[in-house]
Design a protein around this nucleic acid. Sequence first.
DNA 1: AACGAGCACTTGTCACTACAACTTTTTCGT
DNA 2: ACGAAAAAGTTGTAGTGACAAGTGCTCGTT
Lengths: 368, 368
Amino acid sequence: MGETKHRTLTDALKAEILSNKYAASRAIPSETQLSRKFRVSRTTVRKALDALHHEGWIRSVRGRGTFVTRQGAARKIGLVVPGVSYSEFFPPIVDEISRLTRDSGYTLLLGNAVDRRPEARARQTISFVRDFVAEGVAGVVYQPIEMIADAEKANRAALSILDAAEIPVVIIDSDFTKSPRRSGYDVVGIDNVAAGMSVAEHLMSLGVTKIHFQSRPLCSASVSDRRSGVIAAMSAFGAFSRNFRDFKAEPDDIAALKAHLKRGRPEAFVCGNDTAAVRLKISLEKLGFRVPDDIRLVGFDDVKYAKIVTPQLTTVHQPCEKIAEVSFRRLLARISDPSLQPCTISLPADLVVRASSGQPMSSAKKKL
Amino acid sequence: MGETKHRTLTDALKAEILSNKYAASRAIPSETQLSRKFRVSRTTVRKALDALHHEGWIRSVRGRGTFVTRQGAARKIGLVVPGVSYSEFFPPIVDEISRLTRDSGYTLLLGNAVDRRPEARARQTISFVRDFVAEGVAGVVYQPIEMIADAEKANRAALSILDAAEIPVVIIDSDFTKSPRRSGYDVVGIDNVAAGMSVAEHLMSLGVTKIHFQSRPLCSASVSDRRSGVIAAMSAFGAFSRNFRDFKAEPDDIAALKAHLKRGRPEAFVCGNDTAAVRLKISLEKLGFRVPDDIRLVGFDDVKYAKIVTPQLTTVHQPCEKIAEVSFRRLLARISDPSLQPCTISLPADLVVRASSGQPMSSAKKKL
DNA sequence: AACGAGCACTTGTCACTACAACTTTTTCGT
DNA sequence: ACGAAAAAGTTGTAGTGACAAGTGCTCGTT
């Protein structure tokens, strides 16, 4: 089997195309020229070109020649993330997208906005996107900017640059518009409303009724969806009105937490994500509350230290690798057919029950 | 261009494969046999077979022969719907799926459960699914059974038959498990939670605060999601506690409606779907209430008569053709790669504002 | 200067040949 | 009767040759 002549020729041509040897407007060497250059028959050249054609690298016009297609010319993919180290959500995504791009013969351009100040990250993102357009990427995987005042406007600004260049985009994690509005791009992530519902249903199944939701002042659309899910589930149980309350503050803000608890103590805190949950746990302990004995705690994302902290954190697993894989496949599909209907693709997110959500109420009451 | 020899040969072979002339276990005639039979050179035969190979109809083994693949052998798609005439949602779906299957060289087997009694439709569905397995379909588009007591169990029973035969399934409209649970199959539809939120936000933007949600006693998962969306949006406005109420009854049940209204009149009714909304309108008028002057009304689905009735019905558009198209594409993708990650694909559903949701409150109050 | 015929070049189709690599069946020696 | 070798089948690779069909340029005629 091994290396056949047409196989080596296909690979050689792919490599030449990848190295930008051929402009998209000019034809590549003709079949007879190739057959002379590589010392093979025209039959073999045609077989190699057929393979490239089927894989979408080239297209031929009788009488004129063979040309490199847009996909063939621009086998680069851009990935925009607001700081890889900023959340445990990103590293596995970057890894997986890197692997997939290489496997598909693409080159990955990473636009990693690293700056402590969110506003600076927004500016960086814009400049990354401009670079991507200049580099002629075939498509972009985009993680929206969050945690700034006018996040939607900033995201629109970045994405409109890609739109103008007719570059396909797939958004990962969560749309940058608050539900029920949509941005009009493909979005790949988990169903955050459903995730919120599972958490609330789990707590209520333990007999918990007083549930407070912690979120930071400028929270992302995904956190806001999780909150909606908690509310929807509590309402379905008729347990909403007096039992739900928002704690909208930084989880480290002990003064705010003290003030919040003075107005009524919840049986459980649901936090916008695991990072916040762990920080809130520390704040609670500083105020003398134990988790889960005094107050139960649940987060989202299932980051690594969720099962390292004591008590281990009940959370909702975020399938990062799957999100990366599905979003990349979707981007390839959209590159080859830009007329695809924009849609939201949500993957299963399983509830992971650990110690921080505590035991059923009856036994908990015995302890008191 | 017209008909070339290798083209006509590919088409002839496709037709022969479709007519089940070749068993999957036996090889099709060898290249030399085909070249004699069709009086063309082996080169031409190979070109035709190459095309069929690229389209996934056949696979060849050196020394043994060329075989029809599973996809090639079973180019049939099954479609299960619980009564085409039962909702305006189904006819465009059936039309679109028919068109797409034919365009892709598939034959459509329609499993249309028609019976007044929902339990009978469940039994019919099971028998359709058995037929599909016997016919060896390559995949099934499945609209879940609704409106019966143990709908989930019935759907599981039908789908487990397909699972046992390893036949890919795509569910359309909405999953048969109540959120946040998932069935584990691909689901293509709209985001019903978001749809509910848009409706509630629209009403609240008109100044409406008292919103009641009508749903039938055995409602589908989609209706229950829409309800969750309404609740979530109202809660976000802090307008939930005393202003939301469920009206869980048949929209024709005038006695129940009278009793419901006695306990407090809403400013607007949101109904589980348009059919229910139109029926509720008639009931309201029988009790002397005008729509939208006395009580506003909103539905879901944007069925044809939503803009024929007086007043025209405010609703959320259900993109049936798109749902059909996306689900069919997804099914094809899953047939060629069964290891794909199951996911929920939701399409944009736009709010269609018409007369039944009325004018902003200020002007409405002047009328009173 | 404008036009058209012809030419050189491109890809597309088709035929025939030869051999390699592999599998199944047959044959032949033991 | 059995087993190994040979034969006859299959697909895969590679080459040669010829012509058809389409494009673009040149050159000669008007």
